[in-house]
Design a protein around this nucleic acid. Structure first.
Length: 850
DNA sequence: TATTCACCTCTTTTT
DNA sequence: GAGGTGAATA
């Protein structure tokens, strides 16, 4: 269990001081494969950085012989900085410390020609990628409405994550897109990338894999080079990353001798695996001992971050997951003053933001730093309301990983100009700026250039240079194009002799791009000009234009100035690896968290990943964790009733405090239901737990995701024991309106936002349509019966499905699909032949007999 | 060719 | 609610 091998004696070099026995073992077991299972807050980064310092100080390797891979740029920066603190300037000599992708580029640039690229290839961003895919789809004469570029780009992404190429994707996958043209499209896409001398993100890993496989001498060279390999967040690696790593780590046999065990150290936590949607394979971590026989496995379970309450809440929640290696975090630094995890209820998302803002201000008045507080949301759209609120309060906040600097329109445009100058085959960049600013070069002209280029097999800029000398184009566009391409050529010629920042300024000025925004009278224009200046300023840190372009492509985030005191606002995903004294976790509602799509697409494992996300969220907190849920949230611009997240029920009573509704905001006496039924409420029934509150919300007509608030009404029964309410709550969790998901997006009868909660109220009252019961999402997520875990907030009971009261042949009316005839009944799910809309599967609660 | 407006879809998480 | 698209118009 604990460390195998590795001395645990006291003393030794200064950097080992203060490490516990397991940490120390992880640092000192330098030889052979090591897997460190590091729970949240157990000093994982410290182990990694100290291990590197240890290797260096023992002289086991030069800095340039250590390969240290992280998942994010942030993590790489932090590691570099912390190693620097331990070993000083030696860290400067570590070129192979970085993200999978940045190291991939480095390798690819050295051997680009082995895969048909030139070493100055461009890295496509998602924007370029989408435009390219769209062009290809259109070139195949496919309807790009029916076959969206986005979908295909995501499919390719999935393939690449799995390390697949056009030749190796499964036939079924290939057929699933574009009338069976998936494979052709994928191949066409890769061909086009080579023509463009470009690589997308996936290629940064796949090309090196191919290079290693096809060139054993190259691989052998890297084997000699990398004496020690370290991998952070191993649970997040996908198949491609795994293959890449295995190629580098597993040396081939030399002669008859067995291959030497690699000095590879992977650190991870299966409970914090939250990137399954992106192809991450938790299996990689579970399989480590098979991949690397004789591996030392070390568990770090002593938590140095959070209070016992926070840890207890998190542990109890995550225990609901079945797929895990299982670790027990412990701490012995608890004190009676520690606050329990607080669960708060709110009326709507505005109130949530208001209340959180107020709590933040209170903490601030008590001397807490804003820097020590964070709001972690499930989805980025939740941020807006907090931002709005903080702006009105004048509260300093910082969005981490939010709308990125380099994704702004003006930055992308400027970058496209620079790309045209550095890499003349970059058609995508050229197409982006041909007519920005407007030069009278519209679709028709661009098409002509494009065709000419494809005809000759040359890049578009080269084609344009030829075309301006012929009669092919009309005089007006011809002159405009001439001046553009001559400029581009001139700037390219200046590239070797001009300082890159000066050149960039010159390009932006002479192209008329700056002027375009100066003449723009819109409110954003000044900001955009400011951003352009900032872009040029940030170039100063880089040696050359190409160097800068690469940085931007890989490091999409800009470093935050940690100078000022500000509350952090970010998604749960980007919070991984961080910690704060106080953490606010808003939006714990079914459909949002766990997210509906995770449930729909991921089933049980999707739910478990959501739960791990919740675990990550809670374990970010050191002293205080404050969870929120509300009963009304605006989604896609319309108000919807929501019910509390099932995760709330999975918190242990002993570590949680359910907060009473605070009358200082909203002015309502109780939570949720009591506000819209005028008092005959659950709140008066003495229910205090989120579970019951959630039930109350459910009984009041909560619906998430059906997009239909008005008209569909339901009966409310305020039985004191809440049984009925609970039944309804389960039905509600299931209540998706209808199951014909593909048709689900066209909402009939939209609820106008300004009527918002008022309509929600109507929906809740005056109903003659009881919600259906049954096996919906909620219970299906608990297949095999409820898992009983002691000490939860409410007892679990799954309501058995009740047969529908509709019989085959009954005429019914559906708000969206109109009249129809029941074709079959399955529990509470009806298959109905609608007169106009055709056959649909709907929940019986959403139709009325006629 | 540029602009405007009505309409549609889509909103999870990211290197 | 937003952003993108397509058709209609200047």
């Amino acid at each position: 269990m604990a460390a195998r091998g590795g001395p645990v004696a006291q003393g030794g070099p200064h950097y080992l001081a203060g490490l516990n026995a397991e940490q120390r073992a992880a640092v000192e077991t330098t030889e052979g494969p090591v897997l460190v299972l590091a729970g949240a807050g157990t000093g994982k980064t410290r182990v990694l950085t100290t291990r590197i310092a240890h290797i260096l100080s023992l002289g086991l390797a030069f800095p340039s012989q250590i390969l240290a891979v992280t998942f994010t740029n942030k993590a790489a920066r932090e590691m570099r900085q912390r190693i620097g603190l331990l070993v000083g300037e030696q860290v400067e000599g570590m070129p192979w410390l970085g993200t999978f992708h940045s190291i991939g580029v480095k390798i690819l640039r050295r051997h680009a020609e082995l895969v048909g690229l030139k070493s100055n290839f461009t890295i496509l961003d998602t924007d370029d990628q989408l435009r390219l895919v769209k062009q290809l789809i259109q070139a195949e004469n496919l309807d790009d409405k029916r076959w969206p570029a986005r979908t295909f780009a995501q499919m390719m992404d999935g393939w690449k994550n799995k390390g697949l190429t056009p030749d190796t994707i499964p036939e079924g996958d290939a057929r699933a897109f574009g009338n069976g043209k998936g494979r052709e499209l994928f191949r066409a896409y890769q061909d086009r990338l080579l023509q463009l001398n470009a690589a997308d993100f996936g290629d940064l890993l796949l090309h090196p894999i191919r290079i290693f496989r096809e060139n054993s001498d190259v691989l052998a060279d890297y084997h000699r080079r990398f004496r020690y390999i370290l991998v952070d967040e191993y649970q997040d690696t996908n198949v491609a990353q795994y293959l890449w790593l295995r190629l580098l780590a597993q040396r081939p046999k030399t002669g008859d001798a067995p291959s030497p065990p690699p000095n590879v150290c992977c650190v991870g936590d299966d409970d914090q695996s939250i990137y399954g949607w992106r192809g991450a394979e938790v299996d990689n971590i579970l399989r480590f001992e098979k991949d690397f026989p004789g591996a030392t496995v070390i568990r770090l379970e002593r938590n140095y971050r959070s209070t016992a309450h926070i840890l207890g809440a998190a542990a109890h929640l995550i225990a609901h997951n079945e797929d895990r290696l299982g670790k027990t975090l412990f701490t012995d630094t608890s004190s009676p003053e520690d606050e329990r995890v607080a669960v708060n209820a709110g009326w709507d998302s505005e109130e949530e933001a208001r209340a959180v803002g107020e709590e933040i201000e209170q903490l601030q008045r008590r001397g807490h730093k804003l820097n020590d507080m964070a709001i972690l949301v499930r989805a980025s759209f939740q941020m807006r309301e907090f931002e709005d609120r903080f702006v009105t309060l004048g509260l300093n906040y910082r969005v981490v990983g939010g709308p990125r600097f380099y994704e702004r329109q003006e930055i992308r445009d400027a970058m496209a100009y620079l790309r045209c100058v550095c890499q003349p085959a970059d058609d995508l960049a050229f197409e982006r700026i041909v007519n920005v600013p407007k030069r009278g070069l519209g679709d028709a002209t661009v098409r002509q250039i494009h065709d000419h280029a494809r005809g000759n097999g040359t890049p578009m800029i080269a084609a344009a240079l030829e075309m301006v000398e012929t009669e092919e184009l009309k005089p007006k566009p011809r002159n405009a194009l001439r001046s553009l391409v001559f400029n581009l050529r001139r700037w390219s010629e200046l590239l070797p002799t001009t300082r890159h920042t000066d050149l960039a300024e010159m390009i932006l000025e002479e192209s008329g791009y700056t002027e375009m925004w100066q003449n723009d009278r819109s409110a954003e224009a000044p900001g955009r000009l400011e951003n352009l200046k900032e872009l040029v300023r940030s170039m100063e840190e880089y040696e050359s234009l190409p160097g800068f372009l690469e940085h931007v492509a890989l490091v999409m985030d800009t470093e935050q100035n940690a100078e000022s005191d500000a509350v952090s606002l970010m998604t749960l995903h980007s919070a991984k690896g961080l910690e704060f004294e106080t953490v606010f976790l808003p939006g714990w509602e079914e459909g949002l968290f766990p997210h509906q799509r995770a449930l729909d697409e991921g089933g049980r494992s999707g739910l478990e990943e959501e739960r791990r996300l919740a675990y990550v969220g809670i374990t970010r907190g050191k002293k205080r964790v404050k969870i929120w849920f509300v009963s009304n949230r605006r989604i896609h611009g319309l108000w919807q009733s929501t019910i509390p997240s099932r995760f709330l029920d999975e918190l242990p009573e002993a570590h949680v405090e359910v907060m009473e509704a605070n009358t200082s905001y909203g002015g309502y006496g109780g939570y949720g239901a009591s506000r819209w039924d005028g008092g005959a409420s659950f709140a008066s029934g003495g229910y205090r737990t989120p579970g019951a509150r959630r039930a109350a919300a459910a009984a009041s007509g909560g619906s998430y995701g059906d997009g239909w608030g008005g008209g569909r009404t339901r009966e409310i029964s305020y039985e004191e024991d809440g049984v009925k309410a609970k039944a309804d709550r389960y039905a509600q969790a299931a209540g998706l309106g209808d199951f014909s998901s593909s048709e689900n997006s066209g909402f009939a009868g939209r609820m106008t936002p300004d009527r918002g909660p008022a309509l929600g109220r109507q929906a809740a009252r005056g109903s003659n349509q009881p919600p259906s019961r049954g096996a919906g999402l909620y219970s299906s997520a608990r297949q095999g019966g409820p898992r009983e875990i002691a000490g939860e907030l409410i007892a679990k009971s799954v309501v058995p499905p009740e047969e529908s009261r509709y019989a085959v042949g009954t005429r019914v009316f559906h708000q969206k699909f109109g009249p129809g005839t029941v074709a079959s009944v399955e529990g509470n799910k009806l298959t109905v032949d609608f007169d106009k809309a055709g056959q649909k599967r709907v929940l019986d609660g959403f139709v009325t007999p006629i």
